[in-house]
Simulated scan of single mutants.
Amino acid sequence: MKQKSIPTNTLPANFGELIFISRKTFKGFKTIEEFEHSHRDDWHLFLLQEQGTTSIEIDFQKHKIKSLSVVHIHPNQVHRLIAFENATICSMAINNANITPEYLKLLEDITPAKPLSLKKETFSIIKETASLSIKLSKRKHEKLYPSLLKDSCNTLIALVTSQYLDKEKSHDTFSRFEIVTKSFKAMLESNFTTIKRPTDYAKKLNLSTPYLNECVRNTTGFSVSHHIQQRIILEAKRLLYHSDKAVKEIAFELGYDDYSYFVRLFTKIAGVTPLTFRNKNLV
């Protein structure tokens, strides 16, 4: 059933410090009913696939997570579990407030992150760290329980994030083009509904528009305009698929008073009209 907005799962108050970590095994082929419908979470989700496979859909892309893999799902991302197949998974849910600020910034940089396959030795270290965090999560009698749990889970986050960064770049230094591109992407994520022109992003970054375009194109292969449009259309797809808002409502929510222009833009980028996209993806 469509809803007026994309459903968001929240951690129950009885999770204390708003950190949850556990390991579960799913025999056979099945899903968890409460997570099989598309939704967002108000936490960061980390999945460690220890055995078997997990089928998951993240922002309209289906992934099959195999053993010795990890994946990070950002709170902004719409996702649903499709199925488990003889799977053993360690999952961790943690809110922004409990993530070390340095790691939180890095997680923003690697989003959207795809499932990442790891070498056996690397995965083993991450698994051991997760096991320690699970043990500590049960020791609520400890005087420093909140700190113990938070610090151990942040160690796990650091290890997982480090693997993503290692795949992204083999050394610690970034070129000026890459630094500018990261700043632009972070600004885009916070402003895509209100700022649409490359010149406005350049001005906020104290750069000329040609230089911003040069940096972004050199780093990603695409122009600033391309990234702006793709981010807007992704959010439009999310709302068309997961809510019953009218196309005019969605256009207005995304910062377009001109409904006809929004429809033309969506059709140009997505290849179909908003209504066609919605009707083709009804579940």
Results as ranks from 00 to 15, higher is better:
18 L>H: 09
114 K>M: 08
39 H>I: 08
235 E>W: 01
112 P>T: 05
65 I>G: 01
63 H>T: 05
199 T>C: 08
244 D>S: 11
179 I>Q: 12
75 P>G: 03
149 L>Q: 06
216 V>Y: 01
258 D>A: 12
164 Y>L: 02
247 V>S: 09
201 Y>D: 03
109 D>Q: 08
35 F>K: 03
43 W>Y: 13
42 D>S: 10
160 V>R: 02
189 E>H: 10
229 Q>G: 05
138 K>W: 05
53 T>V: 06
201 Y>Q: 00
96 N>Y: 13
172 D>T: 14
278 R>N: 03
238 R>K: 14
60 F>Q: 13
45 L>R: 04
277 F>N: 06
195 I>F: 03
118 L>W: 01
43 W>R: 15
1 M>K: 15
124 S>K: 13
116 L>I: 01
173 T>H: 11
82 I>D: 04
215 C>Y: 00
118 L>T: 00
253 E>C: 02
224 V>A: 02
118 L>C: 00
29 F>K: 14
4 K>E: 15
263 V>Y: 13
275 L>N: 15
116 L>V: 03
179 I>P: 05
264 R>Q: 14
42 D>F: 04
1 M>Y: 12
32 I>H: 04
237 K>W: 00
74 H>E: 12
170 S>L: 11
169 K>F: 07
41 D>N: 12
154 N>I: 08
162 S>P: 02
34 E>P: 00
247 V>G: 03
115 P>M: 05
8 T>V: 15
117 S>W: 00
22 S>D: 15
264 R>M: 12
256 Y>Q: 10
129 T>D: 06
141 H>P: 09
